[in-house]
Design a protein around this nucleic acid. Structure first.
Length: 749
DNA sequence: CTGACTAAGTTTTTT
DNA sequence: ACTTAGTCAG
């Protein structure tokens, strides 16, 4: 019997997952174990071998990138005309579509509803706080918002909230008014997209039944990242058929802080007791040494529900991860850049093969500077998002307002941008007046245009009516013009580009960004404004950064954005107490011993480690500056979980208060001593001199690099005949060593 | 209404 | 150190 084409090249567990057609399946997929492969091959298998019609299949992902990747990979596997009938998309986009198409079921929202992102949400919260006369200093909008989001993720409405104290009471009022404002604006936030869909199905059994009749097979990627609402949605969709296929890895759950609920794995096991469990443990990315390193870290996890996976690779051997203590973040960065340079020079790696990962964006600066100084290009991933830029948000706000006249956040955003004589006071009056009439601000604006006077004097009134008339005019063109033409009309009528172009380079780049947006809008010719706005609202920058990687260069990214990626060489920087684990998670653990924040930090390191194919460098610093000040950090506790047999480089201090204190003190004196020495080669251009027989190549105070011991400081150097013996002080307990100069390379100081 | 100053807050962020 | 929101004078 021949193996079907679609199963060829898959391992036993992968085949099992792909061919487990009926019933609930839980796939626990280790990093690099081919989980996307399993998902795509399973879909192809369902269609081609089992004969399931593509329209009966729904696959849900978290990112647009994952969704489009899945689509194109399925397209490559099966006959192309068949597969466009299936539903592959993010949770949010699938829900957004359902809510739009079923708008007749939701009296409070029309099909033109707006989708609010975090910035829009903050605007709403601020409005709420001011309306309730609450001090934004006591109730920071961000905290309020994250509380609202958590409540929504847990499917708790304002009325179901437990109210035991004054704080609860306040929050309940904020939450309630927040929802009311969204509704009045005909707008939903990201959480609402999911929540309202679940509520829609819960309230309309017939409608749900129709969807269940369409989607016989439901597949989910990154299951560990689902929250309560998403899990409920999955249960609804799977219905009585129970053909729910979920793939995830709770060891890579790093979004609990946003509501991802690792207990969903447990819920799944309880709700679908006859589920099939499949473990994907064979890793196709890294060699065994890296896997042993990663398992060393993750197996110390305290997650009681965790099912341990034993990762293995056919690549048995590989370089051990190198731990390295640098003096400060500048040296750390230099180590990274120098090592990249060196590995590249050896010809084994391309510039795009490297990644530098850090816990927080703030850490990227030192690294960037080192790259700049070395004249090497780099790619900064995910720093400023295109769609979060002011000018982009402004331009989109105009379009959103044309689409949905009740969108008060968008109105608020652009009513005086560019300035048209509608100041703070006037706007407040408008909002108050609208409130008193119980209409949206935009509707109040329309009343003015129709001749109402409102509370306004001549000047304010003129400005408002002029804007209202303009808006009215645009709106009439809404259906005749394409998104691109609408945008160019708005830009022309408002003179927006001239407003942006303030002569600074900053202004230039803003204009460019708007033009880029125009390019995107123009590509929606024939698809309509609604589609354009919906997709743009749900697009993140993972997608947009993709096209900027024309030049291969090392990537600089946070550990969070590293998930799902892989690189031959990975640098993990700032592996220090307070950074990874982040001080916030340590504090949280002290306040609340049941806190899982610390565990999430551990998983973050695990994610970073498992990105590497060949080489890992783990760096921490002796001292680090932050927010202007500076301090000494201890090496991350997680480093101690790496088995000594699989690591090399700087030996770690013994942990424990006393030992740490005295070691630190010794380190400090050593570093200081080394620093007092004049640094050879501190001049800018120090061409690599050929050593003459007499003159030592290395001088006291020079910073040098050794393959095994890493960076060190030269203490002495003696030339004996042909050989130069260099005494080098290596930090972190290695002490001073005498090394033949051939094994050392100078590090620019 | 704009520009300049001051104060405060700085984890991560698929959607 | 650095951004950025809020405040106040012009």
């Amino acid at each position: 019997m021949t193996v079907p084409r679609i199963l060829q090249g898959l391992n036993k567990q992968q085949v099992e997952a792909v061919t487990a057609v009926e019933g609930p399946v839980l796939v626990l997929a280790g990093p690099g174990s081919g989980k996307t492969r399993v998902l795509t091959h399973r879909i192809a298998y369902l269609i081609e071998e089992v004969g399931i019609a593509p329209q009966h299949i729904m696959a849900l992902t978290f990112t647009n990138k994952a969704a489009s990747q899945m689509k194109s990979r399925i397209g490559a596997l099966i006959f192309p005309t068949e597969f466009y009938m299936m539903t592959v998309g993010t949770f949010h986009s699938i829900c957004a579509g359902i809510l739009r198409r079923r708008a007749d079921y939701t009296p409070h929202f029309s099909r033109d509803y707006a989708i609010y992102d975090t910035a829009d949400q903050l605007d709403v919260v601020q409005q709420v706080l001011s309306a309730l006369n609450l001090d934004p200093k006591k109730h920071t909008p961000r905290r309020m918002l994250s509380q609202i989001s958590s409540a929504k993720n847990e499917m708790i409405g304002p009325q179901q909230l437990p109210v035991t104290d004054y704080q609860d009471e306040i929050f309940q009022r904020v939450y309630t008014l927040y929802n009311e404002l969204l509704q009045q604006s005909n707008a939903r936030d990201f959480d609402d997209l999911l929540l309202h869909t679940v509520q829609l199905f819960a309230d309309n059994a017939n409608l749900l039944a129709r969807y269940q009749d369409i989607y016989h097979y439901v597949l989910v990627d990154e299951f560990q990242d689902t929250n309560m609402v998403q899990y409920t949605l999955l249960k609804q969709l799977a219905g009585a058929r129970r053909n729910l296929f979920v793939v995830g890895d709770s060891d890579q759950s790093i979004y609990a802080f946003r509501g991802a609920d690792y207990r969903n794995e447990k819920r799944f096991r309880e709700d679908y007791p006859n589920f099939r469990l499949i473990l994907l443990e064979q890793n196709y990315r890294s060699h065994q040494t890296i896997l042993d390193t990663a398992m060393g870290v993750i197996n110390k996890s305290e997650n009681p529900y965790r099912i341990q996976k034993v990762l293995f690779s056919e690549r048995k051997e590989g370089p051990r991860p190198i731990i390295w203590e640098a003096h400060d973040e500048e040296y750390e960065a230099r180590f990274v850049v120098d090592t990249i340079k060196e590995l590249q020079d050896q010809g084994e790696y391309d510039p795009g093969d490297f990644a530098v990962m850090y816990r927080t964006h703030a850490q990227s600066r030192a690294i960037e500077e080192a790259f700049l100084r070395a004249g090497m290009p780099y790619r900064l991933i995910g720093a400023t998002r295109f769609y979060a830029r002011r000018e982009i948000k402004d331009a989109l706000a105009y379009l959103r307002l044309i689409q949905n006249s009740d969108d008060s956040v968008s109105l608020h955003r652009i009513i005086n941008v560019p300035p048209r004589g509608i100041g703070q006071k006037t706007l407040q009056d408008l909002e108050d007046w609208a409130n008193s009439l119980e209409v949206s601000p935009a509707q109040a604006l329309m009343l003015l245009e129709q001749g109402e006077t409102g509370p306004f004097n001549g000047r304010a009134r003129n400005a408002l009516t002029a804007f209202a008339a303009q808006l009215q005019e645009w709106r009439q063109k809404r259906d005749e013009l394409s998104p691109g033409d609408l945008l160019s009309m708005v830009l022309r009528d408002t003179n927006y580009l001239a407003y942006l172009d303030d002569g600074t380079p900053e202004g230039d780049s803003r204009v460019e960004n708007v033009m880029e947006l125009y390019g995107v809008a123009a590509s929606y010719e024939g698809l309509g404004l609604t589609t354009f706005l919906e997709e743009v609202a749900l697009i993140s920058d993972v997608d947009t950064t993709e096209k900027t990687d024309a030049v291969p260069a090392p990537s600089l990214l946070t550990l969070h954005s590293a998930k799902g990626l892989e690189f031959p060489v990975v640098f993990l920087v700032g592996l220090e107490e307070g950074i990874l684990p982040h001080s916030r998670s340590i504090e949280e653990k002290i306040e609340d011993p049941t806190s899982t924040a610390l565990e999430e930090e551990r998983r973050l390191l695990y994610v970073g480690l498992t990105r590497a194919k060949d080489r890992i460098y783990l760096l921490y610093t002796f001292r680090r500056s932050f927010y202007g000040g500076s301090g000494m950090n201890l090496p991350s506790r997680f480093l101690y979980d790496i088995p000594p047999s699989v690591r090399e480089g700087t030996p770690l201090h013994p942990r424990g208060q006393q030992a740490v204190e005295s070691q630190r003190y010794q380190d400090k004196t050593r570093w200081e001593q080394a620093a007092r020495q004049p640094r050879a080669g501190s001049g800018r251009s120090r061409p690599a001199q050929r050593p003459t027989d007499r003159e030592p190549k290395f001088k006291a105070g020079m910073v040098v690099w050794h393959k095994t011991f890493g960076e060190g400081v030269v203490m002495t150097s003696i030339v004996r005949g042909d050989i130069e013996e260099v005494g080098v002080l290596f930090p972190g307990g290695s002490g001073e060593k005498t090394i033949i100069s051939d094994f050392l390379s100078p590090v620019d100081g």
